[in-house]
């Protein structure tokens, strides 16, 4: 009977997390077009609204948070498909399932990388778009904070949807169908915070509810996503 292999070279959980994130970022940097298209889509959708509803500044200012948030929701849906499908097609996902570490940590790494490539750019872009809608400085700040708290939730809940629809025909549309209804609370609290600050109400409750949703999503979705991946790989 041969001895169990020694663990001297075993990667720690943080090491694994770092490895997965840096890998996904490196892949994205070698294929920058994907990240850019999502961002351009976001900018485009937001810019379409004034053309659709007319340029009255008062109305635009009023709709701005909703428009930015809905556009963020849609563009993060667009990028969801990329989260696992490339790894699924070339077999890397099989190897990930065989990783001797917690699958949830691995999934969390992928989710964080996805957020850095989709949520974070949107968040940084949002103030510029907010200016197009004549939002006040204070409102812009709250918008950014609400996106900071909210977009990771979109990536997390989206990961579950992406894992469930892995390799299916028409997976791209299907994943939106599954995930969008689940993201409605994020939309409500995110826009609510911005609207509250413009109408002079307190924003703490909105943001703390968003924070609570973030904690909840953080606690459960990596685990659920790992389970969904196992189901989809069978």
């Amino acid at each position: 009977m041969n001895p169990k292999p020694d663990n001297k070279n075993r990667l720690s959980l943080f090491g694994l997390l770092g490895l997965v994130i840096s890998r996904d970022l490196m892949l994205a940097m070698r294929r920058r077009a994907d990240v850019l298209t999502t961002l351009i889509f976001f900018v485009m959708v937001v810019s379409l609204f004034p053309l659709g509803v007319g340029p009255e500044v008062d109305m635009l200012r009023k709709m701005a948070p909703g428009v930015v948030w809905v556009a963020a929701l849609l563009s993060s849906m667009l990028s969801l498909n990329r989260m696992f499908s490339a790894d699924y097609i070339d077999g890397t996902l099989e190897q990930m399932l065989l990783a001797p570490q917690s699958m949830s940590v691995l999934v969390l790494g992928k989710i964080l990388a996805h957020w850095m490539l989709s949520g974070l750019p949107l968040m940084l872009m949002a103030p510029v778009l907010g200016l197009q809608f004549d939002m006040s400085g204070q409102a812009l700040w709250v918008l950014v904070v609400s996106l900071l708290l909210g977009t990771p939730i979109l990536s997390m809940v989206g990961a579950v949807g992406a894992a469930l629809t892995l390799g299916l025909r028409g997976g791209g549309v299907l994943v939106s169908l599954l995930v969008l209804p689940l993201c409605i609370p994020v939309l409500i609290f995110g826009t609510g915070a911005v609207e509250a600050v413009t109408s002079g109400m307190e924003i703490a409750s909105h943001l703390s509810l968003l924070g609570a949703l973030l904690v909840l999503a953080f606690a459960f979705t990596p685990w659920v996503t790992a389970m969904a991946l196992r189901i989809s790989m069978e």
């Binding site: 579950v160 469930l164 599954l178 209804p181 689940l182 409605i184 609370p185 409500i188 609290f189 509810l209 949703l213 659920v224 389970m227 969904a228 189901i231």
Partner: peptide
């Protein structure tokens, strides 16, 4: 799995709405 996630979400959605 989707149904379970949905049922966890239904109260959250209801209260947020």
């Amino acid at each position: 799995l989707l149904a379970i996630i949905g049922s966890v979400n239904v109260p959250i959605i209801y209260f947020s709405v």
